[in-house]
């Protein structure tokens, strides 16, 4: 069973405007509101540039919103904290540290590493990194790097795990294998997971709820509850139906709004 978690995330009318070097403004997130509690896995899907990564960065405390409130466990988010772990799209491992040292980084940075050597080894085994402890990031595959990046976050026991397309650079088989690890970890530790992805199948496979966002300015335009039992079957009829649901909601806005966007920002690179 999924462990009970008392954590909560509440976003209310979160708005983020980017200003470029010429002073022109771009509304990236437009009044995004979202409430997540307990041990829910929530997926956020939407076309490129819909601000879903920006939203995660705000929750992680790496960026500041211009409007609205963002509360984690009832307190406003003011900056990064290890209780809100973020896994980047590129694994962003520290090149000069071995896999073991990368995973121990957070514990060491917080000066709680002493006596936790076994915990590091345990997470290395759990994430399927056994035998790669002493390897440097350039020596391991993309899948291994993703596993290490996940382990580096999971080992901190965060109450909120932010996953910013962590598997998007991997091949389909590696991706499916790591999706299993993510589910396993979630069952074991329980936490709020917020997963940003391009991959509709991934969102439906992992999440309890999928949020659909529109292209710029990013707004929440829909929500689909995935109440399928685990383990989920990717080619099961019910699964396919959910997939179609999300796809329909998404493809409509993508084509329609993208055309609009091309007109609005013809110079966009």
């Amino acid at each position: 069973m999924v462990n009970a978690s008392k954590h909560s995330l509440l976003a209310q009318d979160v708005t983020r405007i980017f200003t470029n070097q010429f002073g022109s403004e771009l509304l990236v997130l437009d009044k995004v509101s979202l409430s997540v509690k307990g041990s829910e896995i929530v997926g956020i899907v939407g076309p490129s540039g819909c601000g879903k990564s920006t939203f995660l960065r705000l929750v992680a405390g790496l960026d500041k919103q211009q409007g609205g409130t963002l509360l984690y466990d009832g307190a406003p988010v003011t900056g990064p904290h290890y209780d809100r772990g973020l896994v980047f799209q590129s694994a962003a491992l520290f090149d000069w540290l071995t896999v073991y040292e990368n995973i121990a980084f957070g514990l060491k940075a917080r000066k709680v590493f002493k006596g936790q050597e076994n915990k590091v080894s345990e997470y290395i085994e759990m994430m399927g990194l056994g035998g790669f402890e002493k390897s440097y990031p350039y020596q391991i595959s993309g899948g291994m790097a993703s596993r290490a990046a996940l382990a580096r976050t999971f080992i901190q026991d965060p109450g909120l795990v932010l996953l910013d397309e962590p598997l998007s650079a991997l091949d389909a088989f590696t991706r499916m294998a790591i999706q299993e690890e993510i589910i396993r970890m979630h069952r074991l530790k329980g936490a709020i997971y917020l997963l940003v992805t391009h991959d509709i199948e991934e969102a439906i496979y992992l999440c309890d709820r999928v949020i659909i966002m529109s292209p710029r300015p990013g707004r929440i335009i829909g929500e689909i509850i995935i109440d399928l039992p685990h383990p989920r079957d990717r080619v099961d009829d019910a699964f396919i139906v959910k997939r179609r649901d999300v796809f329909d909601r998404l493809s409509g806005v993508v084509t329609e709004e993208l055309t609009m966007e091309e007109v609005q920002y013809p110079m966009r690179v």
Partner: peptide
């Protein structure tokens, strides 16, 4: 950013991320 999210202080960031890189 990865280091900050993992709980690194400014001093730790300088000595253990900026310097080794």
């Amino acid at each position: 950013e990865a280091a900050r999210v993992l709980g690194a202080s400014d001093a730790y960031l300088l000595l253990h991320v900026a310097l080794p890189s």
